[in-house]
């Protein structure tokens, strides 16, 4: 089995860069859309459990409230066009450390 691959990256990732002062270790994510590949089918926004994926006037997805993303990756694995990537986001400590 390859459960290690299954939606659990976030758990395996040591929360090294989370601020020590954080009250709970809530993980943060960045969702990237490749708009050239996106066909605006709307699956991601329809199935987003947090309903944070919005559509602009042309139907293209975007996210304003990125911090609410739970990293469930439903949108990523259901995007028929391979146009979504979800990455762990580490709170910015240095301005150069931009992983997302």
């Amino acid at each position: 089995m390859t459960n290690n691959d299954k939606n659990t990256n976030a758990e395996k990732e040591p929360p090294a860069s989370t601020p020590k002062s954080a009250k709970k270790k809530r993980k943060l994510y960045t969702v990237t859309f490749f708009h050239n590949w996106c066909k605006s089918c709307g699956l991601c926004s329809a199935f987003c459990i947090k309903k944070i994926i919005l559509k602009d006037e042309t139907g293209r997805p975007y996210i304003e409230d990125m911090d609410s993303c739970t990293g469930c990756r439903f949108c990523e694995i259901h995007c028929p066009d391979f146009a979504i990537t979800i990455k762990n986001r580490h709170p910015v400590r240095r301005s150069t450390d931009d992983n997302g």
């Binding site: 089918c41 694995i77 028929p80 391979f82 146009a83």
Partner: peptide, 21 residues
């Protein structure tokens, strides 16, 4: 060339993703 030929929202892309993973 991407995007692929399938219609927006077509399940083929989802199957392809599952297959590759």
């Amino acid at each position: 060339k991407f995007p692929h030929v399938w219609c927006p929202g077509c399940g083929n892309g989802i199957v392809m993703g599952a297959l590759l993973r």
